[in-house]
């Protein structure tokens, strides 16, 4: 059962009548990897995850889970899957224990393994004190945790979590993030969110989906580490631009709000920051801020999602 990829999806598309919810999405997930799907609301994240979980059949494309085709052998493929949909699929009239025991047997866990699995899942999700409470009487945050427990109780190779931290308080969010990171060590995890810091906190790799298309797919480390093209500097007193322009590496200067300026460097490798600081000290400009402008994930995200919004406005 040693397959290189836990999930391998190729060319996934889904149409609802004339509306295309997702088109030509390919992704793969290795063991021990946490992949984040990022996108504004309605971008097609949930549709993509439903197709990966086998709840929705794709209009085109294939999904392989742990080397088993989801279309040809859904039962076997789904055994390696744990899925938390947008709404936690809990039965409000059952207690936490009853519900999780049922989930364990649905996934084919033998009677002897169930008690241990139940204990482990409750412990990981912090549900031990509410075991005997009715799920319907629990708060939204606890219901969400029951949903997560349901997805991991059978220790699947792949865990798919659709917006796992919705409705949780900040402390619970931290706990769930820790849980996801722990899961990511033994399992493969795909999670979706429209909240950036969440993805940044746990994911090693990020994919941005916008209007049903995959628009960005990179390891998270590359966003931000690439070279910079602009520098932001803030001064108490406006500096003389001709002095600045004479410094090596400085290209153009643009004044911003306050007494900030944006300096564009000539070549990607140039770093005139030390020279600017020295010049500022020599001329008494009162340098208060100096940093390179890097493309953060947030900027990439905003850029990618507003770029299309413009074309949308033009079309309208």
């Amino acid at each position: 059962m040693a397959h290189e990829f836990l999930i391998e999806a190729r060319g996934l598309s889904r149409r609802y009548g004339s509306h295309t919810a997702a088109s030509d999405i390919s992704l793969s997930l290795r063991k021990g990897e946490i992949l984040g799907l990022l996108g504004p609301n309605g971008a097609g994240k949930s549709t993509t995850m439903k197709m990966l979980a086998g709840v929705l059949a794709p209009s085109a494309g294939t999904v392989m889970i742990n080397g088993v085709s989801l279309a040809d052998d859904p039962k076997r493929a789904k055994q390696s899957l744990g899925y938390l949909p947008e709404l936690p699929p809990v039965y409000p009239e059952l207690t936490v224990d009853e519900y999780l025991r049922y989930c364990a047997s649905l996934h084919g866990l033998r009677r002897s393994e169930r008690a241990a699995a139940l204990q482990r899942a409750k412990q990981s999700c912090g549900l031990s004190e509410v075991s005997r409470r009715l799920i319907g009487n629990l708060s939204k945050g606890y219901q969400q945790r029951v949903g997560i427990a349901q997805a991991i109780i059978h220790r699947p190779a792949v865990v798919i979590l659709d917006e796992p931290t919705v409705g949780l308080d900040p402390i619970q969010i931290l706990e769930i993030r820790r849980l996801i990171k722990a899961l990511g060590q033994e399992h493969g995890v795909i999670l979706s969110s429209h909240i950036l810091p969440e993805i940044q906190a746990v994911c090693a790799r990020v994919m941005i989906i916008h209007r049903g298309r995959l628009v960005y797919a990179e390891p998270l480390a590359t966003a931000g580490s690439e070279g910079f093209k602009t520098i932001i500097a803030g001064f108490l007193r406006m500096p003389a631009f001709d002095v600045l322009l004479s410094l090596p590496g400085v290209g153009e200067i643009e004044t911003l709000a306050g007494s900030q300026i944006r300096i564009t460097v000539n070549n990607a490798g140039d770093d005139p920051r030390a020279a600017i600081a020295e010049a500022a000290a020599a001329h008494g400009w009162g340098l208060i801020e100096l940093h390179a402008e890097r493309r953060t994930l947030e900027e990439i995200f905003v850029e990618l999602s507003t770029g299309d919004a413009h074309t949308l406005e033009e079309a309208a």
Partner: peptide, 14 residues
């Protein structure tokens, strides 16, 4: 409507 039908649909059950 409650969204819990997904539990069975995503399980390895026909």
């Amino acid at each position: 409507q409650n969204g819990n039908l997904t539990l069975l649909l995503a399980s390895p059950v026909s």
